[in-house]
Write a protein that binds this DNA or RNA. Sequence first.
DNA 1: AATTTATCGATATATAATTATCGATTATAC
DNA 2: GTATAATCGATAATTATATATCGATAAATT
Lengths: 215, 215
Amino acid sequence: MTNSTTPHTVPRASLKRLPLYLHLLENLMADGVEYVSCTQLAKEFDFDAILVRKDIELTGEVGTARIGFKVATLIGSIKSFLGWDKEQDAFLVGVGNLGKAILGYKDFKKYGLNIVAAFDNDSRKVGTKVFGYEIFSTSKFGDLAKRMHIYVGIITVPPEHAQEAVDLMVDAGIKAIWNFSPAPLRIPEGVILENVRLTQSLAVLTNKLKRVFKS
Amino acid sequence: MTNSTTPHTVPRASLKRLPLYLHLLENLMADGVEYVSCTQLAKEFDFDAILVRKDIELTGEVGTARIGFKVATLIGSIKSFLGWDKEQDAFLVGVGNLGKAILGYKDFKKYGLNIVAAFDNDSRKVGTKVFGYEIFSTSKFGDLAKRMHIYVGIITVPPEHAQEAVDLMVDAGIKAIWNFSPAPLRIPEGVILENVRLTQSLAVLTNKLKRVFKS
DNA sequence: AATTTATCGATATATAATTATCGATTATAC
DNA sequence: GTATAATCGATAATTATATATCGATAAATT
């Protein structure tokens, strides 16, 4: 279950495929399926079976020939490997359209992320509630983060305020930042920054589309 | 400006870096900067300068030694390479929290994506307006898409309805699908599918965080 | 019980992506 | 004017990632 031979560098690509497997495995589990092979998993995603096996290998899980992996324990291994087995509390800054959408998405809890409060600069928003979350003034961020031992911050502010939000979070002892703003951000050594950039994904789409129309 | 030596396979990673450069270049342009070198660009993102040069090479743009690239023409080359120089009309299906957030994000137009209408199954939503977009019944999708020559579809429905949305779009002649649902989707040959999976990004974040807390 | 088949883990190969090297070029400093 | 330094494009080397091969193993088939 635990992995004693974890390599120093986990391929980012593998890390991104594991949630896909997990999602499918949970469906299989719900359907009462007990065992699954890499071949089966691979078929679902049009991946190479060996690729899936190597990804699973990262989690430390071992399978049995001709049978595959036990669905229930594999789910546990992947969750544990991703850090989704124990809940991480998080604060969100920026209650605009995107911030609201994230607050409204209840499933993050299944992925170990528990948003506990939201913050905004706009005094008209402060004090209101969004999907059950009270909106606090950003001036309260540091105090509350320290008091509640929050280490994860989510940034959904407009790009021109994104660096401010980062600084606020860093000062408050935030260790990992999930950033949805398109601005390039500066963070000190030791703080983790993970960006969600919609325009990057759009770029891949439109570039491919361009070539479709060309041919 | 145009690129006669485009390789068959554009590295996806390059495609995702180009919008980063573009964003920065537009800021430089606004500041009146005329020329920029790969070294400068690389410094902004903590990339290797050679990596940036190779990415730019893909767009077909050529620079001059000791000077670099002309900001204005480089912006044009990147936009053209990404297919962002001419507008693509798009339909969005699924006006929930995320769908609304995307409808409210006006900047996509800058990236060549022009959302023209939104669709939802929920009869209570049909006929209402969200950020100026009228919400249509999904039953109207095919007709309107064909009539308006729409080739791009955006999926922001709950995962259990995502495949339906894909089928609807494919039947309507949609060529490229930008999918925000976490469900694994089946598409026919020739249709482009680009997924935005928030849980993948979250996986990278939490896995890194886990290792921070371990050490 | 022997044979076949699917799948495993381990190791090796191939492909893709990134980084390094090098000669050429052009502004800046002397 | 000549030397110096920065940066280019092109090519080579390195590293990372994905795929292929192979013996071992365990169920299914005969």
